[in-house]
Amino acid sequence: MGWAIALHGGAGNIPLTLPPERREPEEAALRHCLQMGTAALKAKQPPLDVVELVVRELENNPHFNAGRGSVLTSNGTVEMEACIMDGICKEQGVETIDPSHFITPNNIERLERVKEANRVQIDYTEPIQKEVEKQTPVADGDSQIGTVGCVAVDIQGNLAAATSTGGFVNKMVGRIGDTPIIGAGTYANRFCAVSATGKGEAIMRATVARDVAAIMEYKGLSLKDAADYVIQECAPRGTAGLVAVSATGEVTMPFNTTGMFRACATEDGYSEIGIWPSV
C-alpha cells in the first residue's frame, strides 16, 4: 500500500493537430499541480486537503474551464459547480470572491460566437456552425475543454475526490451538470476515489463514479478493470473519462473520448502526464 494521486483537466474532442501554444500551458499546469499534490502527500497531508489544494490551483488557472476562466451562461454570467466528498461551504469560513473575477475576455468572445451560432457547446474544440448560414463546421482549435478534478490516497488508505467545472458555453441559467452530484462526477468510499469528466448528462445517466466503486465492491474487480468497464461499456462512446485511485494505491485514467488532459503519480515512482491515448 502506498500513496497515489491523479488529476484531470477535462476530456473531449481534442484534435491530434492541437498546436503547441494551445497544448503546452495545460501540460505545464498539470505538471505543476501534480508536483504540488505529490509534495503534499509526501508531507503526510490528509487526502481531503490534498485534492482541495490541487483543484483550487487548477481553478485559478484560466486555461481550464473551472474557477477563473469558466465558460459563461446565456446571460453572460458564471455558474460554476464543484464537489468534495466531505463538503466545503461559506459557513465554514471558505474565502469568497466577486463573480467578475472569474470572467475572462476569451470567454466573453467564446460566448458571443456560440450565441451567434444558436447553440450550446460542451468544449471548445467542437465546430461552430452558423445555423442561418449553414456553413461547413470547422474546429476553432482552442484546447480549453472542461472540468478539473483530483483524487488521492495516502499510505493509510484514506481516500478523497474533488471535481470542479464551469459547465457548457451558453448553457441555460440554472443548469446543473454531473460534477457536484455524488455518484456521477465525484465519488469516494473505502474502495476508491473517482473524478469524472465529459458530457454531464451521459455521466449522470451512467452514474460513472459510483459504478466504479460498486463494481469493485460487488464483483471483486480491480480498480483498472472496473473503471475500464464503466468507461468502455456503460458510458456512450465519446462522452466520458475519469481519474481514480484505490485504497491500495492503484491508479487509472481511462477515457472514451479523443483525449483527456491527465496526470498521475504513485509512491513507487510511476508518473504520467498525457492528453491522447498512450501508444
Rank of each mutant, 00 (worst) to 15 (best):
D228S: 06
G220H: 03
E233Y: 05
S246H: 01
Y229W: 10
G238T: 11
A247N: 11
D211N: 15
A227I: 08
G249M: 04
Y218M: 12
C234V: 15
C234H: 08
A213P: 09
A244W: 06
T207E: 02
K219P: 01
S246P: 01
V243R: 02
T207N: 11
Q232T: 14
A235T: 13
V243Q: 00
D228F: 04
A226H: 06
T239E: 11
E233W: 01
G220V: 08
S246R: 01
I215M: 12
G220S: 05
A240N: 03
D225T: 10
L223R: 05
P236W: 05
E250R: 00
T239I: 02
D228H: 10
A240R: 02
E250Y: 06
I231H: 02
L223N: 06
A213L: 09
Y218Q: 10
A244Q: 04
V243E: 01
E250H: 11
R237V: 14
I231A: 03
R237G: 10
E250M: 06
D211Y: 09
A214Y: 14
G249N: 02
T239K: 09
E233P: 03
A240L: 05
G249Q: 03
V245D: 02
A206I: 11
V208M: 13
K224F: 07
E233Q: 15
S246V: 06
G220W: 05
A244L: 08
T207W: 11
D211H: 12
T207S: 14
A247Y: 10
G241H: 04
M216Y: 11
L242C: 04
E217F: 10
R210H: 14
G249C: 07
A247T: 09
L221Q: 12
T239P: 01
A235Y: 03
A240C: 15
R237W: 08
C234W: 05
V243P: 01
G220N: 05
V230P: 03
T207H: 05
A213F: 12
P236N: 07
S222M: 07
L221N: 09
M216F: 12
G249V: 04
L221D: 07
A235S: 13
E233D: 14
Q232I: 02
D228G: 04
L242I: 12
L223K: 05
S222D: 05
T248F: 00
A226L: 06
L242E: 01
S222L: 07
V230N: 03
Q232R: 13
G249H: 08
G249F: 08
A226I: 10
A214D: 14
L221Y: 11
V212Y: 07
K219R: 13
Y229P: 00
D228T: 07
A214H: 13
D228N: 14
V212Q: 07
I231P: 01
V230T: 01
S246G: 11
A213R: 08
E217H: 14
L221G: 03
V208K: 00
G238N: 09
I231S: 03
Y218P: 04
L242Y: 05
A235M: 02
P236K: 08
L242F: 05
I215T: 15
Y229K: 09
R237S: 13
D211S: 15
L242H: 00
V245H: 02
A227D: 03
A244C: 10
K224S: 14
K224V: 14
A206M: 10
A226M: 04
A227K: 02
K219M: 09
G249A: 06
A247F: 08
G238A: 10
E250W: 01
A209L: 09
R210G: 03
